[in-house]
C-alpha cells in the first residue's frame, strides 16, 4: 500500500449482548491525525464501538482496523498503537497519581525513566501538587486529567476518549479540550465519543452521528448542518411584552415560531434569508423594537432532531440543548 492507511476503519461492525443489540451497523473511516467525533445519546452504542476498536470486545460481525491492523487478528499490534481513556475513570483509585503513571511507564518499557516521565506529565497536567495523594481523593477534573495523562505515558498514535468531559465543570472541560487539541496538533488521531453536541462541534473535524447502534449521518460539522438545509432566525425584542404580537407577525411572514426561555426571545426554523429580511423589516414597521436579530446555521442538536425526529438526549444541564426545552 502506498497510501497511508486510515487511522481507524470500521466496516459493518455489529455487537450484541445476549439478545440486546448494542451496535447494529457501524462504518467509520477516520484519517490519521484528526479528531473524529462519534456523537449520540446514551445507549446509542458509542462505548461498545470504542471497546471493540480498543480490542476489549470481539465484534459479532463486521471488521475494524487501526492503522491497517485488524482489531481481532492483530489485537496485540493494535494495543501497541492505541490508548484508551474509558468512561469510568481508567486509573487505579487506590494508588497515588504518581504511582499510576509510573506503573504504566514500567508496563510500557520505560524502565528507570518511568518515574521521571510521571513527574513530567503530572507537572504538565497541573497535578504535580497531588502527585503523592491517592487518586480516590482527587476532584473530578483532576482525575480526568490524570486519566488522560495515563493514556500519554507513551504517546499513542490513536487515542480513544469515551465521554472525557461528562460531569466536569466548564473550566475543567475547557482544559480537557485544550489537551485534546494539543494531542491532535502533535499528530495523534483522536476518536472522541460524546453526547455533547457542542463538544463535537468544538473539537472534531469529522463527525459520525450514531443512534440505536447505527451511523445515521456522517460528515464535517458544516456538512451536517447544511444537510438540515435551512437556517434559523433568532430575534430578541426590546420589550418582552410585545412578544405575542411579534410571534403572530413572524408566524404569518415566515413560519412556525418557537418561544425561547428568554421572555423576549423568539426563533423561527426554516427561514430563508430573503423572507427573514422582509419579516425583520415588518417587525420594525409595526413598531416592535429589536434588541438583536440573527440568521444562524442550525446547531448540531437541530441536526440530530432533523435526522432522528427526536432530541439527542434528556439532560437538561447541557446549554447546547436549550432549544429542545422550549414548548413549541
Amino acid at each position: 500500500m502506498t497510501d497511508r492507511p486510515l487511522a481507524i476503519e470500521a466496516t459493518a461492525l455489529a455487537k450484541s449482548f445476549g439478545s440486546t443489540p448494542a451496535v447494529q451497523h457501524v462504518d467509520l473511516a477516520v484519517p490519521p491525525g484528526t479528531i473524529y467525533g462519534v456523537l449520540g445519546p446514551n445507549g446509542a452504542g458509542k462505548t461498545t464501538t470504542i471497546r471493540v476498536l480498543a480490542t476489549l470486545l470481539r465484534p459479532d460481525s463486521g471488521s475494524a482496523r487501526v492503522l491497517g491492523h485488524d482489531v481481532v487478528a492483530e489485537a496485540d499490534q493494535v494495543r501497541s498503537l492505541i490508548s484508551l481513556t474509558g468512561q469510568l475513570a481508567s486509573v487505579d483509585e487506590e494508588l497515588t497519581g504518581h504511582e499510576n503513571l509510573t506503573l504504566l511507564g514500567r508496563l510500557l518499557g520505560l524502565r528507570r525513566s518511568s518515574g521521571a516521565r510521571a513527574d513530567e506529565l503530572l507537572d504538565a497536567f497541573g497535578i504535580a501538587d497531588a502527585a503523592g495523594k491517592l487518586v480516590k481523593h482527587y476532584s473530578g477534573g483532576m482525575r480526568r486529567r490524570l486519566d488522560v495523562a495515563a493514556s500519554l505515558v507513551v504517546t499513542p498514535q490513536v487515542m480513544f476518549l469515551d465521554e472525557p468531559t461528562t460531569g466536569l465543570d466548564p473550566r475543567s472541560r475547557n482544559q480537557v479540550w485544550d489537551i485534546v487539541r494539543a494531542l491532535a496538533a502533535e499528530g495523534t488521531t483522536v476518536l472522541l465519543c460524546t453526547q455533547y453536541l457542542e463538544e463535537a462541534d468544538q473539537l472534531a473535524r469529522g463527525i459520525a452521528v450514531i443512534d440505536r447502534g447505527r451511523v445515521i449521518a456522517e460528515g464535517t460539522p458544516a456538512q451536517l448542518k447544511s444537510s438540515v438545509g435551512r437556517s434559523v432566525l433568532h430575534v430578541r425584542l426590546l420589550d418582552a411584552g410585545q412578544r405575542p404580537a411579534a410571534a403572530e407577525l413572524l408566524e404569518r411572514a415566515v413560519g412556525q415560531v418557537v418561544l425561547e426561555a428568554d421572555p423576549a426571545g423568539l426563533l423561527v426554523h426554516g427561514s430563508e434569508a430573503d423572507r427573514a429580511a422582509v419579516a425583520v423589516a415588518e417587525l420594525a414597521a409595526a413598531g416592535i423594537g429589536l434588541a438583536h436579530f440573527s440568521l444562524d446555521q442550525p446547531s448540531l442538536d437541530e441536526v440530530f432532531l432533523t435526522i432522528t425526529g427526536r432530541s439527542a438526549g434528556d439532560e437538561a444541564d447541557d446549554p447546547s440543548r436549550a432549544l429542545q426545552e422550549q414548548p413549541s
Binding site: 520505560l110 495523594k133 502533535e186
Partner: peptide, 24 residues
C-alpha cells in the same frame, strides 16, 4: 487534595507528548 487544582499547561502538555519515542 481536592482543593489543589492548578491548570494544565498546554505548551507543557505538547512538549510532554512529543518528547518520548516508544521504548522497546
Amino acid at each position: 487534595a481536592t482543593t489543589t487544582n492548578r491548570d494544565a499547561d498546554t505548551a507543557a502538555v505538547r512538549r510532554a507528548i512529543s518528547s518520548t519515542p516508544r521504548p522497546p
